[in-house]
Design a protein around this nucleic acid. Structure first.
Length: 827
DNA sequence: CGTGCGTCGATTTTT
DNA sequence: TCGACGCACG
């Protein structure tokens, strides 16, 4: 992982210009221009399939190779973990770069890293935990109940949405414009929610962003430090940034007109902005161009993905949107096949037609895995799944629950969180009576009242409950306490195994009818933790960078050889003062919150890919089916009626961009279909074809069912009849049964093997062996300047990476980076 | 305190 | 149609 790449190595590198020429070899003129732009604010308008990721990664590689910046001076921001990983992978294949020290990651991942390094300044506990949307919602719900508010009027989900939305706009409770009584109450809840999170030591996703933004805003010395450090900031999918994310970027880069403004390199495509509904501001692109005086917007319009007919369709469609930055995709690949359009009599018939075409494509050499069926909303997948299942075609559905979102995994994580921090009320409530311990709603309510009265956590308030209920609660507290004590000094694996053996989750699921899968997932959690230990920065390469004396207190230094992986969701920046680092458990919990895990089960299997159009963004396939192109569905009726949703802009235009995204996923063949009748919410609806058909060029289309043919005639029916004769009892994937199929339970392909990280060598973990250099031993008494006397519980890692868990009694057990912390053995 | 039944509501989603 | 969720009952 770590190849030498510092300034000396650079100087010694053979002829940088020759190297950079090789690097730039395969670029077209526009790409080349973008990659080699001077260090100034830049906006790259990158069309679908125009080599966006290549430009981003080559830009970084070029900057490094030509010595314009060292790895530590680069920040690259994405929205998804997947994109971040891909960027790093491609970068490292391009250049033997030491990724350590580079800040490549998601917005939230980088915020986490930043806040971990400056937790004191940010007024957070060092091991603050991140809560997901669900946790945040249940916290709000609790508050609404506690405040005796009407849940009809203050719907928890909506209130949570209000809070997140306010944060995304950079507004604290005091900044919200109170127009009416209702808003006043919402703000009151918002304030109470903030207090509660602070008390519990948890932050939600929006808080990660807002808190780090405010930290930079309010601390000039910190701001200057980071501005000196990050000279190049590259942003992917810039059209998806919200207000806060843009403000955050400006904080890191410097405001326009200030000195030392970093080179902000924004890559995006306004035509692919499809997340307005969650606060994305396409307008950020135009704002950025104006505010930072971007000299020349570079457009990447040459498409390397699709044939002409496909691109003609995309171009013609998107031309119906107003206020675009303006861009036209072109290819040198020739027109290719026409876009085939099919009119089905019913959703059922549409699915049968799909099967026929998919099989035809396979016969002509296109593998299943290269075929994607896209739809606007998830509900549409049912019919299609059912048809594929009956036809014995393997398929995979994207979306759905990811590993760390599964109920049983969340329960296990809640126990782990309580071990780490018993005052985490959200986790407390989740598992205090799961599995059942005879602690009912009544007891919990009493406890909550007591906690509220004293302003303390549930855990701390248990003693205030008397009687049988109090005894049972005390029993639960003891369970947590005992685990906390017993796991002190244990490896992550041992901690999880002990927890599972103690809390009774496994036994509970053993008695459940369909509990076996859940038990397997719990066992999988151990593997996930092991994988984390080796992959995410706790392995042999991890930890401890030297402290920069000139840096502000608690800040990080220029990256040194020991800085954790650029991608590590959690890094172990030791506190500059004490050398204290995050415990492996706390780090793993953070990882679980920040990266919900894959749902890309069986990625290697040759199966048809089913997903929403949103989920398809960024992917490409040889053949693409866009289904359900009906008025009301696609474009969706809610979007059409909606008078400019949150992100501003026209709902219909966003639907059109969505269609544009769908079209541009196809390499060779594109199919579109719509149904005359469709079963929706238990009712048969009669639809007309999507208005988008009127916006596509006739010359690029081929109607499989002649347009004038009416209901019930022609191909559609023939397909249906043909299918009815030939199908029904085809071979079936997976279970070999044809009955009892249920979407969602789909035994065939989608659900089965989620998240199976590779097995790993267990050697490194619990080495009680004496690590070279530091001369410490397990059980040894040591002295620390801040924490005083302590006993060494655990030793891990070697050399620069060496770390120890030390029990300081009154101060508790702490993890220390030995390269930083000064520990003196006491005889 | 757990189960069963009725009501309600149903774009899109990453972190 | 189907699932999540709240409430009433045993």
């Amino acid at each position: 992982m770590s190849l030498p790449f510092d300034d000396d190595a650079l100087a010694a590198a053979p002829s940088p210009s020759a190297g950079s020429a090789r690097l730039l070899d395969k670029l077209n003129p526009e790409q080349l221009e973008a990659v080699t732009l001077p260090a100034e604010p830049a906006l790259i308008l990158a069309g679908a399939g125009s080599g966006k990721t290549r430009v981003l990664t080559t830009r970084i590689a070029w900057l490094l190779q030509t010595g314009q910046v060292s790895p530590g001076g680069v920040m690259a921001v994405t929205f998804t973990n997947k994109a971040a990983k891909e960027m790093l992978t491609r970068l490292t294949t391009m250049l033997p770069v030491n990724a350590r020290g580079m800040w490549i990651g998601t917005f939230h991942g980088l915020c986490n890293r930043f806040l971990r390094a400056h937790w004191k300044m940010a007024n957070l506990p060092q091991s603050f935990q991140i809560i997901d949307t669900g946790d945040s919602q249940s916290a709000v719900k609790r508050l609404i109940k506690a405040m005796n508010l009407d849940e009809e009027r203050y719907v928890p989900k909506q209130v949570a949405w209000f809070i997140a939305g306010s944060k995304d706009d950079g507004r604290r409770p005091k900044d919200v414009d109170i127009k009416d009584v209702h808003t006043a109450k919402l703000v009151e809840i918002y304030q109470a929610y903030e207090d509660q999170c602070q008390r519990e030591g948890v932050v939600d996703f929006a808080e990660l962003m807002l808190r780090s933004y405010e930290l930079l805003r309010d601390h000039p010395e910190l701001r200057e430090h980071y501005r000196r450090r990050f000279r190049h900031i590259l942003v992917d999918e810039f059209q998806d940034t919200n207000r806060l994310q843009y403000a955050w970027l400006r904080m890191f880069a410097g405001q326009p007109g200030e000195r030392d403004v970093a080179a902000l390199f924004a890559v995006g495509d306004d035509d692919q902005s499809i997340y307005g509904f969650r606060g994305a501001q396409v307008g950020n692109m135009a704002d950025f161009e104006r505010e930072y005086h971007v000299a020349k917007v570079i457009k990447l319009e040459r498409n390397y993905r699709s044939f002409g007919n496909i691109l003609d369709s995309a171009n013609a469609l998107i031309a119906h949107n107003a206020g675009r930055l303006g861009k036209n995709l072109r290819t040198e690949a020739g027109p290719g096949e026409p876009v085939r359009v099919f009119e089905a009599t019913s959703d059922f018939a549409e699915a049968q037609w799909l099967i026929e075409e998919i099989q035809q494509l396979v016969r002509s050499g296109t593998r299943f895995v290269e075929q994607a069926v896209l739809y606007r909303s998830n509900a549409q997948s049912r019919v299609i799944e059912s048809a594929l299942f009956n036809a014995g075609i393997a398929y995979r559905v994207y979306g759905g629950l990811r590993f760390f979102e599964r109920a049983e995994v969340k329960h296990a994580l809640a126990y782990l969180r309580l071990i780490e921090n018993p005052n985490d009320d959200t986790s407390f409530l989740r598992v205090v009576n799961f599995p059942a311990r005879g602690i009912g709603a009544r007891s919990v309510e009493t406890l909550q009242d007591a906690a509220r009265a004293s302003g303390r956590s549930l855990y701390q308030s248990v003693s205030a409950v008397s009687g049988a209920a109090g005894a049972k609660l005390a029993g639960f507290n003891k369970l947590i306490d005992d685990l906390h004590e017993a796991t002190r000094g244990e490896t992550l694996r041992m901690i999880i195994e002990r927890m599972l053996a103690t809390v009774g989750l496994i036994e509970f699921y053993r008695n459940e009818k369909e509990g076996q899968d859940r038990i397997e997932n719990l066992e999988e959690l151990v593997n996930a933790a092991e994988a984390f230990v080796t992959q995410e920065g706790f392995g042999k390469d991890a930890v401890a960078l030297p402290v920069d004396e000139t840096a502000p207190p608690g800040s990080i230094a220029e990256p040194g050889p020991g800085e954790p992986d650029a991608l590590a969701a959690v890094n172990l920046l030791p506190d500059a003062d004490t050398g204290e680092i995050l415990s492996p458990l706390a780090a793993f919990l953070t990882h679980a919150a920040l990266e919900a895990g894959d749902n890309q089960a069986q990625a290697g299997q040759d199966a048809v890919q089913l997903m929403t159009v949103h989920a398809a963004k960024g992917l490409e396939f040889d053949a693409v089916f866009i289904t359900g192109l009906e008025e009301g569905l696609f474009p969706h009726e809610n979007s059409v009626t909606q008078i400019s949703s949150k992100g501003g802009g026209d709902g219909l235009e966003e639907e059109r961009r969505l269609m544009y995204v769908a079209i541009t996923r196809a390499r060779q063949r594109l199919y579109m279909s719509f149904c005359q009748t469709r079963m929706l919410h238990g009712q048969t609806r009669y639809n007309i074809k999507s208005r988008f058909f009127d916006e596509l060029p006739e010359a690029a289309l081929k109607w499989i069912t002649p347009k004038q043919q009416g209901f019930g005639s022609g191909y559609a029916q023939q397909y249906q009849q043909a299918w009815q004769r030939g199908s029904g009892l085809h071979g079936v994937v997976g279970t070999g049964r044809n009955e009892g199929w249920r979407p969602g339970s789909s035994s065939s392909s989608s659900e089965a093997e989620v998240f199976r990280p590779p097995p790993l060598p267990t050697a490194m973990a619990n080495s009680a062996a004496k690590a070279a250099g530091h001369g410490l031993r397990q059980g040894m008494s040591v002295f620390h300047n801040k924490f005083g006397e302590g006993v060494v519980l655990t030793l891990e890692g070697t050399g620069n990476d060496a770390r120890a868990q030390v029990n300081f009694g009154r101060h508790g057990a702490k993890w220390l980076a030995l390269s930083v912390a000064k520990l003196t053995p006491i005889e």
